[in-house]
């Protein structure tokens, strides 16, 4: 990224290659919307290009990227609130296309689905720390820098988020039975 900053814009392609998958995953888990996630993905890279001068090189590139991604998500959510009524088509397609396989697989799949639902029901604040630490494999110090809070606060948030998630998940399971 420091090379990009000093004017070698082609190096951005390398960064895109390396990080676009995990970043897309983060955007998707935060918004549950594939198309919007792709738009936001492009947007994050565009903003990084535009504000490359603000990258100091002190922190890691990853934390800076997620920091920008959070702002893009915030802007996206503001926009969505203004113009509601967009649905993810692929979501419906998945629901229609869900076939039946062996019982065990179905059982496992249902569990995962329920957990996913619980994750979606979490408050954004809690969901964020869980996604960053479970799916993006960020260390707590890194998460602290992304969120601009102390490492201790991250520890508390992760603990609280796991408990909330557990609760929501159990609730869903008992409702079914």
């Amino acid at each position: 990224m420091l090379k990009v900053r000093s004017g070698d814009l082609d190096k951005m392609g390398l960064l895109f290659h390396r990080y676009h998958r995990p970043l897309y995953g983060f955007l998707f888990h935060m918004t549950q919307h594939r198309e919007a996630s792709e738009d936001m993905l492009q947007n994050v890279f565009y903003r990084m290009l535009k504000s490359r001068h603000t990258f100091t090189g002190e922190g890691e590139f990853r934390t800076w990227m997620y920091f920008i991604a959070r702002n893009v998500i915030k802007d996206h959510q503001k926009k969505v609130r203004r113009e509601p009524g967009t649905y993810d088509v692929t979501d419906f397609a998945e629901k229609i296309g869900a076939g039946v396989r062996t019982d065990e697989l179905v059982e496992h799949k249902l569990e995962v689905k329920a957990l996913q639902k619980a994750l979606e029901a979490l408050s954004p604040e809690s969901r964020e720390v869980l996604i960053l630490s479970r799916f993006q494999d960020l260390r707590h110090e890194e998460i602290a820098r992304v969120l601009d809070i102390s490492t201790g606060a991250v520890k508390v948030r992760v603990h609280r988020a796991i408990n909330q998630l557990k609760e929501l998940y159990m609730q869903d399971e008992t409702e079914k039975r």
């Binding site: 998958r21 692929t90 995962v112 479970r134 799916f135």
Partner: peptide
């Protein structure tokens, strides 16, 4: 819970 979370799939871009 942590292990189960790992099974949630993340779509490809």
């Amino acid at each position: 819970l942590w292990a189960l979370m790992g099974a949630i799939d993340t779509p490809e871009p």
